[in-house]
Design a protein around this nucleic acid. Structure first.
Lengths: 145, 145
DNA sequence: CGAGGATGGATTCCTAGGAATGCATCTGTC
DNA sequence: GACAGATGCATTCCTAGGAATCCATCCTCG
């Protein structure tokens, strides 16, 4: 049986470099980090998004997410709205500025990623994406159980 | 043209979950973090390893690596040896305990990764590994230039 | 309906990485 | 052989995430 550790290391290295490059460009051109972009994107996409929904997606701790949301609120990109029917919880909603930031950032992220991965043949990229998607789904299923 | 951002997001999520799981198990069973494991592995593999060699591999900043090496030294797993011929630099060398930790940790990492990726067909995994390897090489080449 | 546990989230303390700076040493150039 | 830059690394300050704790609210089951 071939061992998977080297492949994992490559995965980590690729992720680090892609993340770093996109984060740097986003921060320079749009004034937000890639992490913030991801949060805005999830809040925008998930209907009645709560803090724990972000936790489930990004797989970092509740405390970290709570503080990240604080920063988004402070930046004026997001608000906590009272949850009707559960007073422990808040619903997260983008402000107009938040939506504008997100809309402005999307093409930058896509463009930078496209440039960085331009050397890989599209069909290889497609297979990579497919395998990652199923692996992600499996990992999340295993975690949830 | 299909967009690459969703695939990148999957990549980040997969990496986060794999890294977190392996890190937790390694820390629980062997008393070291996955990051430390990686440093030990590189120091062991690269002949006359310096701080900047670690930086080139892991793509984090010099300062961060310098402090990480401090921790390895403090833990007694690594030493800084005077570099013959360049007094600015030190060579990094594992101590016997460092080698022992590394040897003990390797199979744990491999086992946990194998378990987490068991649901993916081996040939898909192999293709994933191959694409990641070339992508990594391309990214590093682009960065170096 | 009341008690015990589960859930949602915030807070606090600790560790790790990024950015900038400092400083010693090396290297090329004239 | 001296001086200007480049290099290798450490240090300082700042931000971000993990772990543990705490509190309010909700839910379940007797």
């Amino acid at each position: 049986m071939s061992h998977v550790t080297p492949a994992f290391v490559d995965l980590v290295r690729v992720e680090t470099r892609l993340y770093g490059a996109v984060n740097a460009r986003l921060r320079a051109e749009q004034g937000l980090g890639l992490g913030q972009f991801e949060f805005l994107e999830i809040i925008d996409r998930v209907p009645e998004c709560r803090v724990l929904d972000l936790v489930a997606e990004v797989a970092i701790t509740v405390g970290a997410v709570s503080k990240a949301v604080d920063r988004l609120v402070e930046a004026g990109w997001c608000r906590r709205v009272a949850h009707p029917g559960d007073r422990r919880s808040s619903l997260l909603r983008l402000t107009p500025e938040g939506e504008a930031r997100l809309a402005a950032a999307r093409p930058v992220v896509e463009a930078e990623l496209a440039a960085l991965t331009a050397s890989v043949p599209p069909e290889d990229l497609a297979r990579l994406a497919a395998t990652l998607a199923t692996l992600r789904a499996d990992l999340e299923a295993a975690q949830g159980s």
